[in-house]
Write a protein that binds this DNA or RNA. Sequence first.
DNA 1: CAAACTCCCTGTTAGC
DNA 2: TGCTAACAGGGAGTTT
Length: 271
Amino acid sequence: MPELPEVESTVRRLKKQLVGKVVISTHIGWKNMLPGSTPQKFHKELIGAHLREPLRRGKYIVIPAEQGQQEKYLILHQKMSGRTKVFSSEEARSAYDHVVLTFDDGVELRMTDPRKFGRAYIVKDPNQVVGSLGPEPLDKHFTSSHFFELLKKRKGALKPLLLNQTFIAGLGNIYVDETLWAAKLHPLLPATKVIRIQSDLIYKNMRRILNAAIKAHGTDFGDGVIYGGKYRPKVYGQSGKACSRCRHEIRRITVAMRGTHICPHCQKMKK
DNA sequence: CAAACTCCCTGTTAGC
DNA sequence: TGCTAACAGGGAGTTT
């Protein structure tokens, strides 16, 4: 569930909290969260490391670390239920705190994740993990022409395409549904049929919505404890309610095996 | 390239 | 009311 705006909010907070921290111990509560590694290796890779300023790439949190002369990167993906936050070491851990870095000044970074889908990587080059991601939708160099060029090369339906992280990075189910509703386009519309005006509508609304959601600290998933986001989706999770534009009933359909929320009146296949 | 399906997990929800 | 089974969901990987 954490998508670009939620991860961005998390990273902005971590930027103020992690720089200069020195790792004195680690804890892994679920081995499968370290693909291709082990808690022992993980510990060895981070012990004594100094953390630098984190950044976001797609839905990943990238934390540069220096261990002696070694430059490495701790990369976290929270998948569905992961939440990443700094706590005082005094504060009791939850049973779901599966990745924990304890620092030398009485605080620790905890990725808590009840569903254990989250992943943590340590790599020399971030591209080993995030190298295949598509462009950042909010990058100032990523223009509407660029977006249209990418779209023209694709054949699939809009929704799975926008969800595809190698096509564009950071969108998930919520913001794809919100973007398509705002652009008044059906999620099953093939990319080949999208004309420039429509492409621009997707581009413009996608950026507007992502920016607004970041400003609101993301969407509140009911676990408001950590994100506390105030973004209010127009269609996502709103099935049965009236579309705020036309008052027709919002429906939940299945597209590419994903729950998808649309206004059947605003979002039609043919115009 | 694309679509469909599997896997990883467990809290939530629908069904009995 | 209490229990169980189905389901959701991000993304990587596999198969068609």
